[in-house]
Amino acid sequence: MTAHGTDEAAPAATTGAKPVTATRHLLAWVAGIGVLSVLPWLAVNDYHRFLLDLILINVILAVGLNIVKGFAGQVTVGHIALMAIGAYTSAILATKFGFPFWLALPSAVLVTALAGAIVGIPSFRLEGAYLALATLGLAESVRIFISANDYLGASIGITDIPPPSLFGLRLDTHLSYYYVVMPLALAGVYFSFCILRSNTGRAFKALREDPLAAAAAGINVQKYKTLAFVLSAVYAGCAGSLAAHMTPGFIHPNSYMLAEMVTLLLMVILGGIGHIWGGIIGAIVVTIVYDLTRDYYNYQMLVFGMVIVLTVMYMPTGIGGIIDRYIVTRRFVALRKAKGDAA
């Protein structure tokens, strides 16, 4: 258990549970892929498929934010600007230079990764609220720059961003687009697992707990802070590009404002900051709750604000933390029972 929530290694260590086999891991992933593959066919109508696309894009975005905020403990509120950079790069490349989606997407990811490195620079010297303010400033600068730049569509936005095509087939329905977004979301989630389990992930956690102690232990703080921002930006760039190319292919600076950042933060906080499933759970819950409360537009933002406050006050580890606590308790009880039986 950590100050920021739970992670995989800690409860396993406390309970002394054996690591699962690679086969069980593989089976879990195969099952996940199987469920996700048929999910859009279970949806009653195209609106639900649209929501599934949206959920998966938000999963990519939230998992990315969880890397920098949850794993590495950097307080950033500029993530939405990275998404905007990804979206606009992809849109410009596709509409003005004729790049196909399959080339525009990786290009957007690269540009956003570079932007992520720049956004990460203030984190060398700033922490906490100061870093939040700096990243907020950067985020607003990006939005304002877009709004004032005719080449980027200014306040009119960019229209007619083409959907991806595969062997001449336009993937412009919500169903077909799902099969573009879903593999990328799965890859993103898998990659975040890999990061957390790697030396890099351990360095991130050390940074999160105490940067001074991490530095004393030989961790290059600047390098890993920058890396956290860059990795997080890769996700944001990918999500931005996917959002831009989704039918009807339109982007506008109003979609990258502070309210969107707050919603994104809510996904990570509600899901569980630093919890490996936090971003995923949060993205799913928030996107669905947002949709279900759409009819109550007068109170929607009030409800969302209250959920953030109440979550931070009474459920600081989020839904992911509750799940972990439940599992740890169950294991502990089982272990005691087993010891009792043996005695």
Binding site: V35, L39, D324, I327
Partner: peptide
């Protein structure tokens, strides 16, 4: 590690349930 996978399976089920919930909307 065990815990991560357990939570993973639950999350997968949650996704399916929420999906079903969506599908069940009138």
């Amino acid at each position: 590690m065990t815990i991560g996978t357990g939570a993973g399976l639950r999350a997968a089920v949650s996704i399916a349930l929420l999906g079903a919930g969506l599908a069940a909307q009138p």
